[in-house]
């Protein structure tokens, strides 16, 4: 069953369970005030990326229902979040997504929409794109590498050219232009069993290369380590990289990352309305507070100080500069 990582691979020798590692450092991972409502509207996707921790893909049928969308919007209206972050799968493929974005956008200071670019480039996404522009929704687009061989090894054949074409189209709409109010941020995940580069240096290089080679502008680049769950974990296991990768993550454990981890301020809602501390716990099936609950069952955002569910996958967010 996709989504719950099979416990078929043992933890490498010498790597402590993440919870025990925190204890050994005298640390606890607890919630701070909730600032961001992240909404995963479904696992249906037009791509089947090899690093996807949710194993999203064209064969998946799980998408958020109109009722759950209504409950999410009601929760967001009642409990003001600074930011709302809509993700998937490919959110573009979810029925009713344009209307959902139009309802959510006025409810937070910043609304983000995650896209693999190809799904947004489809003719069927035209109305959605108009809604995103009209409501000044920030786009967060996946672009792992500017080398075709690496981008396509992760995301599929032909993906880089289509991604670049859509980025140019977004630039033409004003996305990525200073002062336009239309933020275009990129996300780069490593295309293999290694950690990402430093974010600032990578952003400088992506900006220079995209401008010089393709005439494309964007606002910010985020680099994130891949989390050893789902399809990525299966690839690690099949390629004989699992042990080395997990050891690499554990060796790079940085206690200073804990204060800024995104799970401390995030409420993550699954396609079925279940709430989690983060998208990775969603993939691992670890509910917020240890008890399965749906968004409409919450009295409000989780209280500061509440303990966050952790697993060995948390090593990915605490390696090096961390996942913020």
């Amino acid at each position: 069953m996709p989504g719950s990582a099979a416990a078929c691979t043992v933890r490498p020798d010498g790597v402590a369970p993440f919870a025990r590692n925190l204890e050994a450092h005298g640390l606890a991972l607890v919630r701070d005030a909730a600032l961001t409502l992240q909404v995963n509207v479904g696992l249906l996707c037009n791509l089947a990326c090899r690093h996807c921790h949710l194993e999203a893909g064209p064969a998946r049928t799980e998408v958020m229902s109109p009722d759950t969308m209504r409950q999410v919007a009601e929760h967001a209206r009642t409990h003001a979040y600074a930011a709302i972050d809509v993700t998937g799968g490919a959110p573009e493929l979810v029925p009713g997504i344009a209307g959902f974005m139009a309802r959510l956008a006025p409810l937070a200071k910043r609304t983000m929409f995650r896209t693999n670019l190809l799904a947004l480039a489809r003719e069927e996404s035209r109305e959605l794109l108009e809604v995103l522009v009209e409501n000044q929704v920030a786009l967060v687009a996946s672009l792992p590498s500017l080398a075709a061989s690496q981008a396509e090894a992760q995301r599929g054949k032909g993906v880089l050219d289509h991604s670049l074409a859509m980025l140019r189209r977004l630039n033409d709409l004003g996305y990525g232009a200073e002062g336009s109010g239309l933020d275009l941020d990129l996300v780069s995940n490593p295309t293999g069993a290694f950690l990402p580069p430093g974010q600032e240096a990578a952003e400088r290089r992506f900006k220079a290369d995209l401008a010089r080679r393709h005439g494309i502008a964007f606002n910010r680049l985020y680099v994130f380590a891949n989390v050893p769950l789902g399809r990525y974990r299966k690839w690690l296991e099949a390629s004989g990289n699992y042990e080395g990768y997990v050891r690499r993550l554990a060796d790079a454990f940085n206690p200073c990352t804990l204060a800024g981890l995104m799970c401390r301020t995030l409420v993550s809602v699954g396609w079925d309305g279940q709430v989690y501390d983060c998208d990775f716990n969603q993939a691992e099936g670890l509910p917020m507070g240890g008890v399965p609950r749906r968004i409409h069952e919450l009295d409000g955002p989780p209280a500061a100080g509440a303990r966050i569910a952790v697993g060995d996958h948390c090593y990915a967010c605490t390696a090096g500069a961390g996942f913020t």
Partner: peptide, 13 residues
């Protein structure tokens, strides 16, 4: 090889 990949170098480079 590992360090080049982790520094964001591409296979082309």
């Amino acid at each position: 090889t590992k360090q080049c990949l982790e520094q964001g170098s591409t296979l082309e480079e």
